[in-house]
Design a binder for these strands. Structure first.
Lengths: 212, 212
DNA sequence: CAAAACAGACCAACCAGTCGGTCTCTAAAA
DNA sequence: TTTTAGAGACCGACTGGTTGGTCTGTTTTG
């Protein structure tokens, strides 16, 4: 039964998030999971493999979401909208994974690192591509350098792991709406001559337009 | 003489950036600095103190810059412009410090952590305050939630440490210009009725408006 | 010559990973 | 049905290597 494996994953995730990968020993994980060294090493080859599994589950999910969003829509505006929304929402689902991901990713063993890097780059390229597309169709401002804009967007979203909390002032959906709004305001060409008008695209009636 | 101290700081910074705090032993630092254990522990109480010093030099600098930018200008638009520019440019000066800062900050001993946290919060509050100010004067869109917008800006800039390189395609000044432009496009009210007009404020003729 | 700066052998603690062994459960053999 | 055989799950004492830090002594500096 893979029950213990799940327990170990869950408890170690909590511990890593609190104290960091190096701040937690295998013995602590084992104790918190009510098992033993033997139990641990029966399910994982090493402490490093555990770190890899955590990384992989999160990045795999994100990549899948982005691919889907990319295939469903045709307009770059819609595409970036859904990618950002999905991306932001992932922080609600996988907050602990992501925290560990960004804080300990450089301690991954080379073999593991390469696998993760490939998926992460794939995601980055998707964002870049959508921006490029939007600039070609004239929806997005052509004067913005694509790489810088892309990294600005990625950074802004990625940083969420540092401050988001489920008990915070704003829900993840509200945050997603604001982010989409900020990004679209930043990149949309003012004379977007496409089928959809600026305003109708920019805000799907985000929550904060209704507030007083 | 405090010469060795500087050498240790510099070499350990390089090592930490490459391999991370936990990936570098005191013996390695000592060897790379052409000194001995005795030399190291003469200048630093512990490996942790070394980590603290690195954190502190960077955050102290950033905070000083932001304070200055805040005092020099009166208009929130000008303020946010200089804060962002200064903030972005810090990544050119202190890239290694910042990398270590964000990757290892949760391994700081509590006593150290508190000191750093205070300065970091001070900086965050300054950014928040400028946004608030801009919303009050009507320069910035009032419908944007201040906290989310602030964190979006901080995240977008902070993330630079993950990808910026001096040998990269764009200079730090170019990046700073694009960031200022993106942020102002996102936050400026379209009917900014202030002394300065939208366009003249937004871009101080950034490099990319001249391209082709 | 006194104090600071540095050298380097040494140590105690810790920690990831191992290894021989047990327990349980299933399924084939008797 | 009972017995036997075997596989996978799990246990926990042990180890070998590493690491941060100390301590005694030596050199340099003012």
């Amino acid at each position: 039964m893979a029950e213990l494996r799940e327990t170990i994953l869950k408890t170690s995730l909590e511990l890593f998030e609190q104290k960091g990968f190096h701040g937690v020993t295998v013995n602590q994980i084992v104790a918190a999971s009510n098992t033993s060294k033997g139990g641990f090493y029966h399910h994982f080859q090493s402490k490093d493999e555990l770190l890899f599994v955590i990384h992989d589950t999160f990045i795999t999910y994100v990549l899948k979401e982005a691919k889907a969003a990319n295939e469903i829509h045709r307009s770059p505006i819609k595409k970036i909208q859904s990618i950002i929304k999905a991306f932001v929402k992932v922080f609600d689902l996988y907050k602990p994974h992501i925290s560990v991901f960004y804080q300990e990713s450089n301690y991954l063993k080379p073999e593991y690192e390469e696998q993760i890097k490939r998926k992460r780059d794939a995601f980055k390229q998707m964002v870049f591509h959508v921006i490029e597309e939007g600039q070609e169709t004239g929806d997005f401002r052509k004067e913005l350098p694509m790489e810088i804009t892309g990294m600005a967007i990625l950074g802004m979203v990625n940083w969420i792991y540092k401050w988001y909390s489920r008990d915070g002032k704003y829900s993840i959906d509200e945050i997603a709406d604001v982010y989409v709004d900020i990004i679209l305001h930043a990149v949309l060409a003012t004379n977007s001559v496409h089928e959809e008008s600026l305003q109708s695209q920019m805000l799907e009636r985000p929550f904060f337009t209704n507030e007083k």
